[in-house]
Design a protein around this nucleic acid. Structure first.
Lengths: 123, 123
DNA sequence: GTAATCAGTTACCTTTTGGTAAGCAGTTAC
DNA sequence: GTAACTGCTTACCAAAAGGTAACTGATTAC
């Protein structure tokens, strides 16, 4: 009957999922980690990502202090997005999510590798 | 240039978020870990969770082999939901999400490191 | 003036997710 | 037969997330 306790421990979990959940946020962060800095650059680095969604996601990420936005004056006006130090703390989380996903697939589709399954169909 | 590689590494991350993302899944798993077994029992253990959503989420969790469903014959027909061993592998992930959420809150609302971050990156 | 680039915004839709309420099937108890 | 419990399903909505396409504003290049 100690549900209260468990549920309060879950608030931070929900916070985290709100910040990095959704379809694009982690992809965008990684794109920035890879060195992409400008709006169009980021957009082009992630297939199927539209300007509207990117715009919204960048705002969310900035609000959560995972990226910074700087407008540079010059030529055709450029904006520079950079990942913050704080964003680096996500590496461990993302790695953990990745590991679990890999292990989960093994659990779901068998320990044998998929190539085996695909090739040796009819025994 | 190495986007392909990064993106393929992200597939497991997306898998994981699909499995444990959303508003209720982690709560339900934890409710089962706490010992709740029956439909109504789980429903009552999580405030604001409706039968419809619980029903759907339980199916998803069963598909992902995180819980098992057993129908017991007897009295007013009872179903027993139990967390699998595999579900236990989520503990580490959830803990990591929780830690990050807590730390993120400190980062956002604690004044200590704010200036640090903003200045360090735009240098 | 026309085109093209960057960095977005806006309007409009569709899909997904979540919520509300009612109802159904099966069984027990009265 | 009526109520009450369990374990759901169904129909109907509302909100949020995501997608498409057009368009703005600034500036350079021709």
């Amino acid at each position: 009957m100690e549900h209260k306790e468990c549920m309060s421990a879950l608030l931070p979990v929900r916070d985290t999922l709100d910040v990095i959940g959704g379809k694009w946020k982690i992809l965008i962060i990684i794109s920035l980690w890879e060195g992409n800095k400008h709006f169009r650059e980021i957009e082009r680095s992630i297939p199927k990502l539209s300007t509207k969604v990117l715009s919204k996601e960048l705002k969310d990420l900035e609000e959560n202090q995972l990226i910074t936005r700087t407008v540079l004056n010059g030529f055709p006006v450029r904006t520079e997005y950079k990942p913050t130090k704080h964003s680096r703390t996500l590496e461990k989380v993302i790695l953990e999510l990745q590991h679990w996903g890999i292990n989960h697939r093994k659990e779901m589709f068998g320990d044998r590798n998929e190539a085996d399954n695909a090739i040796a169909v009819s025994g």
